[in-house]
Design a protein around this nucleic acid. Structure first.
Lengths: 152, 152
DNA sequence: GTTGAAACCGCGAAGCC
DNA sequence: GGCTTCGCGGTTTCAAC
């Protein structure tokens, strides 16, 4: 994966679309002072660089009743269980991120669930029943202040 | 924040747009078999429920040279330093998430940086120099297998 | 980089179950 | 309430410069 050079116009396009993926290209064009077609051409090139992965509509999990965010450090009986455990975690929709990290944990995950009861059920029934999982450590997020992408 | 009931069509709209925020409403309309205007009307209602927060273009940080993801548990000298520390963290662009969590840490953050050297600089110069930060514990993510939103 | 034209789409209005 | 059709205005996208 090669890195890339962006000029001011590219950055402006990206910043606009990162904030709102449906920003009309013409309004970006007006802002930076070039034609809409030029924005379109640059965007196509940027898409080819793989810098742009896609665009997602962002949901508010709270409206669906998912009010609890937690991080769970999972201790594995042996590191060799990593792959099979991940496979099982894929099937748990509440698991929204998984990482193989340095440190004590075999797997480190982020989960979203409806409430503490739901969290307990998830930990006891879904996660700790996965073959290879020895024990877990849970950090419940009581407040999230920062949530953003990398600055360009 | 009240929860909400979604029927099959709503779910189809949301699933399409979560995957690609620029999916034309008309193509969703064709897929579910109702008119484009109806999709548009439903989408407006969904936006009013606050389920839909917005839409973001998603970037691949690796293309910008940000190859290292890490989680950092921050110990504070006192819990009262939380607000002021968060304020300082806001100014560090590499910090992409911050949480107030149960457990030992005063603040738990996710950071993106270019390499291990960059990570060290960030920890030593930026984070540990924040007033109130006693010490930190770092987990470097060597592999991320899951990254998604909540399932609808 | 530009313009211009064509095709496509979003979006509101009005009316129909 | 939720759907339809209709049509205008704006947007994307292309070719040619």
């Amino acid at each position: 994966m090669s890195t890339i050079k962006l000029d001011g116009v590219d950055k402006c396009i990206i910043r606009s679309l990162v904030e709102d993926a449906r920003t009309p290209l013409l309004s970006i064009a007006k802002e930076v002072g070039i034609s809409g077609a030029a924005i379109h051409q640059r965007l196509k090139k940027l898409e080819q660089t793989e810098l742009i992965v896609g665009s997602k509509m962002v949901l508010n999990p709270k409206v669906l009743g998912y009010t609890t965010t937690a991080f769970v450090g999972i201790f594995l009986e042996s590191a060799s269980m990593y792959k099979s455990a991940i496979k099982k975690l894929q099937d748990i929709p509440e698991v929204v991120e998984s990482h193989y990290t340095t440190g004590n944990y075999g797997i480190f995950i982020k989960i979203l669930c409806k409430n503490n009861e739901d969290l307990m059920r998830l930990l006891n029934e879904s996660i700790q029943s996965i073959k290879g999982v020895a024990r877990t450590e849970t950090f419940i997020s009581l407040d999230q202040q920062i949530d953003r992408q990398i600055k360009i």
